[in-house]
Simulated scan of single mutants.
Amino acid sequence: MKIFCLSLLLIIFLPLVIPATDNTNLVYKGCAKQDLSDPNGVYSSSLSAIFGALIQQSSKSKFYKTTSGSVSGLFQCRGDLSNVDCYTCVSRLPILMNKLCGKTVAARIQLLGCYMLYEVSGFAQISGMEMLYKTCGRSNAGNGFQERRDAAFSSLESVVGSGNGGFYTTSYENVYVLGQCQGDLGASDCGNCVKSAVQRAQVECGTSVSGQVYLHRCFVSYNYYANGHKDPYSSPSSSSSYSSSPSSSTSGSNPGRTVAIILGGAAGVGFIIVVLLIARKAMKKDDDY
């Protein structure tokens, strides 16, 4: 009888598990071609220490950089993520790095909501303006689209890096844009990096209704939503997650739907309580025998 009750409870509670958001979807990976020579395990120990420190800090910070021995590493979460979502995103990166890159002298993994990188001392450095990855959605957004997108980009360029932590979102006539710089980049360098990324997006993506451009030290993203509503075909993969933020939302709340959710939740809780009481009585009877 006890086994039956436990099985029943599992059936009830399992559907209540909330699936992970797409913040942990892979965007791109960058793996050094040179393997890491580590016969004594020194680098592996340093790397493990770095991964542990980065994961720990991700529960209370959006950016953190550290060094252990001759290995340096950092992580950064998108500026609109909560501490919980940041931690969830970052905690997946070490496993992905090992799976996708193996043991190399440097690696960088970018997810939708965060990225992590590490480098062994002496690894060749690249410019902060170096383009690492870009993706563009479908073309033909209609007349006047490029003008609206460029107006949104101009607003982004005028604000990002100016004392706002290097993260900013804005919109102009249904074009939503987002920009973010690496956490330790100064305001001037951040502004220059974003301007470079914007220029790349304008050239590389042209009339595409969506685009993402990742430079070494910053990235920009834009999406065009026809009639102010999300167009599921406007961008590849899940790039729209970058431009979705509370400040750029255009849809109002739906009181009827909210009430329905509350009532449905209350009914579900009531049902669970009833089942728990029945299970408790059943187990008590079983114990009496």
Rank of each mutant, 00 (worst) to 15 (best):
G137V: 01
F167G: 06
L117E: 14
Q180D: 08
L132H: 05
A106G: 14
Q125R: 07
C190P: 13
S155W: 00
Q110W: 03
S171V: 00
Q180W: 06
G166S: 09
V120C: 10
A152K: 02
Q182F: 10
N174G: 12
S162F: 03
V160G: 02
K134L: 01
L112C: 08
V159A: 04
T170I: 06
D150P: 10
R108G: 07
V177Q: 06
G137P: 15
L178D: 05
N140H: 04
N143L: 05
G122D: 12
Y176K: 15
S139V: 12
F167I: 01
V160T: 11
Y133W: 06
Y168S: 05
A124C: 00
F167L: 03
S188Y: 03
G165R: 00
E130A: 08
S162V: 04
G183F: 14
G186N: 13
T170Y: 04
N174C: 07
T104Y: 09
A152Y: 09
S127K: 07
G142V: 05
M116R: 02
F167V: 03
Y168M: 03
Q146D: 09
F145W: 03
E157F: 00
G166P: 05
Q110A: 12
S121W: 00
T170A: 13
R149C: 09
L156A: 06
C181E: 06
A151C: 03
G179I: 04
Y168H: 15
Q180C: 11
A152E: 00
S139R: 14
L185G: 09
A141Q: 07
C114T: 11
E147A: 10
Y172I: 02
G102Y: 15
I109Y: 08
A124V: 01
G161R: 01
G163W: 04
Y172A: 11
G113W: 02
S139E: 08
C181W: 05
Q125V: 04
R108I: 03
S121M: 11
F153L: 03
Q125K: 11
G179D: 07
A107S: 15
C114E: 11
S158Y: 00
S155N: 12
F123W: 08
C181A: 10
F145M: 02
S154K: 09
T135R: 12
G186A: 04
K134V: 10
G166F: 03
C114H: 10
T169E: 10
S171N: 15
N140C: 01
T104G: 04
C190T: 02
S158K: 09
S154T: 08
G183I: 07
A106H: 14
